[in-house]
Amino acid sequence: MKENKFLAIYNDLLLQIRKGTFQPNDKLPSENELSQQYQTSRETIRKALNLLSEHGYIQKIKGKGSIVLDVGKYDFPVSGLVSFKELAQKMRKPARTIVHELEIVKPDEYIRKHLSVPNKDEVWKVIRSREIEGEKIILDKDFFHRKFVPLLTRDICEDSIYEYIEKELKLKISFAKKEMFVDQVTDEDRKYLDLNGYEHVVVVKNFVYLEDASLFQFTESRHRLDKFRFVDFARRTH
């Protein structure tokens, strides 16, 4: 029952943070006040607060208490291999994909290098904005080796390319290598993103492989700085 109690308190406090009852930089009530409010022990309250801290919703500062952090960002898993459709469903936020370009191209030097394709091979080029809660905050520039993905349509690109690849083409997407860095905003970013005055974006390069270790996709995802929190889980090995 104790475990259920601290999780219930965690979820209740989290709901209040997300609804804006507690704003960024606000101080949560003290452990004593919360234990009285929820009619439970300080140990149970401490467990709930520790969980909020671990998940990045509060910062516990000695002598000051628990300070609410800015949660106007969306968790984006660094180590995971998740489609935007899956991410949007998990967030339960209104989201849509806008396709700006869909064409078959001969790879230039940059794409040949990143997708490891010869000159003669054709590549699908897909440029899409990702909109969450009415703001275009991700620009995805995808390149798929046509040898593995012979056909793409605008409808597929607006829905989920990964779902199409796995369910229709019966290919198994296995793993990805990623690079992440901060880059200056480009004219293309200005054209397709709601930048809100930001002059830099977070760029994630994805090199995505099938089960047989074939590199079939290279993606450059460009994220508005203020909207994404990149999360990962790490365990120290001994």
Rank of each mutant, 00 (worst) to 15 (best):
E3R: 10
F6D: 05
L7W: 14
A8G: 09
N11T: 08
D12M: 12
L13P: 01
L13G: 03
L13M: 09
L14N: 04
I17M: 06
P24R: 02
K27E: 03
L28K: 04
P29T: 00
P29E: 07
P29Y: 01
E31P: 04
L34N: 08
S35W: 10
Q37K: 13
T40H: 05
R42S: 07
R42W: 00
T44I: 13
T44M: 05
A48D: 02
A48M: 06
L49F: 06
L49K: 00
N50F: 03
H55L: 12
G56Q: 03
I58K: 12
Q59V: 04
Q59C: 01
I61L: 08
K64T: 08
G65R: 11
I67D: 08
L69Y: 03
L69S: 03
V71M: 07
P77H: 05
S79M: 11
V82Q: 14
L87P: 06
L87H: 05
A88Q: 01
R92F: 11
P94E: 15
A95C: 13
R96T: 13
R96D: 11
E101I: 00
L102T: 10
I104W: 04
Y110Q: 09
Y110C: 01
R112K: 15
K113I: 01
H114G: 07
H114Y: 01
L115W: 09
S116G: 10
S116H: 13
V117P: 10
N119F: 02
N119K: 13
K120Q: 08
D121P: 07
D121H: 08
V123H: 02
V126P: 04
R128N: 15
R128K: 07
R130Y: 01
E135Q: 08
E135R: 09
I137V: 14
I137C: 12
I138Y: 04
I138D: 08
I138K: 02
D142S: 08
F143Y: 15
F144T: 03
H145E: 07
R146V: 06
R146N: 08
K147G: 02
V149D: 03
V149N: 03
L151Q: 05
R154A: 01
R154Q: 09
R154W: 11
I156L: 06
C157E: 15
C157W: 01
S160L: 06
S160V: 02
I161H: 06
E166N: 00
K167L: 15
L171H: 05
L171Y: 09
F175H: 15
A176L: 08
A176C: 09
V182D: 00
V182H: 12
D183R: 06
V185A: 12
D187Y: 03
D189F: 10
D189M: 05
R190I: 11
R190T: 12
Y192Q: 14
D194M: 02
D194E: 07
N196Y: 12
E199Y: 07
V202D: 15
V203G: 06
V203H: 09
V204G: 15
E211G: 06
D212Q: 10
S214H: 14
S214R: 15
F216L: 14
E220T: 05
E220D: 13
H223M: 13
R224N: 10
D226H: 11
K227H: 14
R229D: 03
V231G: 03
V231D: 04
V231L: 04
D232K: 01
R235Q: 13
R235E: 11
H238R: 13
